[in-house]
Nucleic acid binder design. Structure first.
Lengths: 144, 144
DNA sequence: CTTGACCTGTGTGTAACACACAGGTTGTAG
DNA sequence: CTACAACCTGTGTGTTACACACAGGTCAAG
């Protein structure tokens, strides 16, 4: 029987993360000591390693919970797994593109600001650097 | 004097977001009606537009709060603004790279799974698709 | 027995909203 | 003037995946 710390070492997971997974019911202790300490088996360690693999592949903890619950009922989670990752691929692609746009905005701004001095704020302006960025007046609307 | 809804329209911001900004003290109402409704001036609308610009440039709401507070004390926030965005550029670049790695992992997995059938879980395996992914046994450790 | 190091469970904080809810306001019809 | 519907109001709570803090428990050394 393993303690939380031992389970953490066994599954290459920070102990406080293991405790978080316990808290949300993603994993359950196999047994409990009289003093309230949780105890685990090597089966639990394998389960936790699975959780980490799935997370590394982009699954959310909620999705992983669903998957393991399905699996415990004997139902194959594979179909859901395929669907989820397809969805996640689209989602992630969109997010990456958005972040690259942001990156460009930031780099352009910083470059533009190189030629500008610092300013002292008055009632009208808070920070003329930020306010000088393109899209201030005629608001370009690039939203989701 | 503008109501929350009018301020939202005026500054091209969803009303529930305006309320959130009020709640965290990022913006303050200029006045209050007897029934508790908040009232704003066009100056508040300009302030809120500034907030949106800064957010569009990647500043967090906390940073924007600091900036406006500095500005209200008459101190120039420009120096901080430059530093923050430099830091954010690095941060964002790292995040993008990480997400691109995830993207590759997901796409490789999905491709690999094309050749694999769904499986029925037993006690040892939860989902053989996920478990089949490279890096299952020898854990590649790419952490922050 | 005591000291210190370490480990335990759990409460709370984080970022930036999204949603829900009970009540208030306003416009229109009768 | 009233009834009703549409909309707007402030605020409580839920979200994700932890990170940190805290009071107390455990264990080995001395």
């Amino acid at each position: 029987m393993l303690t939380v710390n031992e389970l953490a070492l066994e599954s290459d997971t920070p102990a406080h993360v293991v405790r978080y997974y316990l808290r949300i019911g993603l994993i359950q202790p196999a047994a409990q000591q009289e003093n309230g300490y949780r105890l685990f088996t090597s089966h639990d360690a394998a389960r936790l390693r699975f959780v980490r693999m799935a997370k590394h592949l982009g699954f959310t903890l909620n999705e992983i919970k669903q998957i393991t619950q399905h699996a415990e009922l004997g139902e194959s989670p594979c179909d859901d797994v395929r669907k989820i990752i397809q969805h996640r691929i689209h989602e992630n692609r969109a997010k990456i593109e958005e972040m690259m746009k942001l990156q460009e905005r930031m780099e352009q701004a910083l470059e533009q600001w190189d030629l500008m001095p610092d300013g002292i704020p008055d009632g009208n302006s808070v920070c003329h650097l930020i306010e000088s960025v393109e899209g201030s007046e005629g608001h370009c609307h690039t939203e989701t």
